[in-house]
Amino acid sequence: MLEDKSPQLTPISAYGEFGLIKHLTENFSFDNDSTEVSIGDDAAVINPGNQRVVVTTDVLAEGVHFNLGYVPLKHLGYKAVVINLSDIAAMNAVPTQILVSLAISNR
């Protein structure tokens, strides 16, 4: 497969948050019948077995969202939970479980 040596590059800042989400997801099709709300800003809604489930996760990356040089782990854990709880609340759902994603350097 040949690589295009002069691709058209658009800076992410030109899209903005919602424009980037739209650009990344506009060619996805969802064939699963249990998917009610797919990729979006806050959360997805799936309905396996007639029980709606709202799922979300936000990755916190060291050097972008936090700095371990001055952020205590207790505060980082709190932030990781709260940002996802806000997504669940935005979908008018009640949180029951937590899924946390962190990207931390090897130091």
Rank of each mutant, 00 (worst) to 15 (best):
M1W: 02
L2A: 11
D4S: 08
K5M: 02
S6G: 01
S6A: 06
P7K: 05
P7S: 07
P7H: 02
L9C: 10
P11W: 04
I12Y: 15
I12T: 09
S13F: 14
Y15H: 12
Y15R: 04
E17N: 07
F18H: 13
F18Y: 06
F18R: 13
L20Y: 15
L20G: 06
K22D: 13
H23F: 11
L24H: 05
L24Q: 12
L24I: 12
E26S: 13
N27H: 15
N27R: 14
F28D: 06
S29W: 03
D31P: 03
D31N: 14
N32G: 03
N32F: 11
D33R: 08
D33F: 04
D33I: 09
S34A: 08
T35H: 14
T35A: 12
E36F: 10
E36L: 15
V37T: 07
S38F: 13
S38K: 02
G40E: 03
G40M: 00
A43E: 00
A43D: 00
A44P: 01
V45R: 10
V45A: 08
I46K: 01
P48I: 09
P48V: 08
G49W: 03
Q51H: 14
V53N: 01
V53P: 01
V54T: 05
V54K: 00
V54E: 00
V55H: 00
V55F: 00
T56C: 03
T56L: 01
T57K: 05
T57N: 08
D58S: 08
D58T: 13
V59Q: 08
V59K: 03
A61W: 04
A61S: 13
G63H: 10
V64R: 12
V64K: 13
H65G: 13
H65A: 06
H65T: 02
F66A: 08
F66P: 02
N67R: 06
Y70D: 11
Y70C: 06
Y70K: 10
V71D: 08
V71M: 15
P72T: 01
P72W: 01
L73F: 13
H75R: 10
H75L: 10
H75W: 05
L76E: 06
L76A: 09
L76F: 07
K79T: 11
A80H: 03
A80Q: 04
V81D: 04
V82W: 04
V82L: 11
N84L: 04
N84R: 04
L85C: 03
I88N: 00
A90D: 07
A90N: 15
N92A: 04
A93L: 07
V94Y: 06
V94H: 04
Q97H: 13
Q97D: 14
Q97W: 07
I98Y: 07
I98A: 12
L99W: 07
V100E: 00
V100C: 03
S101D: 12
S101A: 14
S101E: 10
L102D: 08
I104V: 15
N106L: 11
N106D: 15
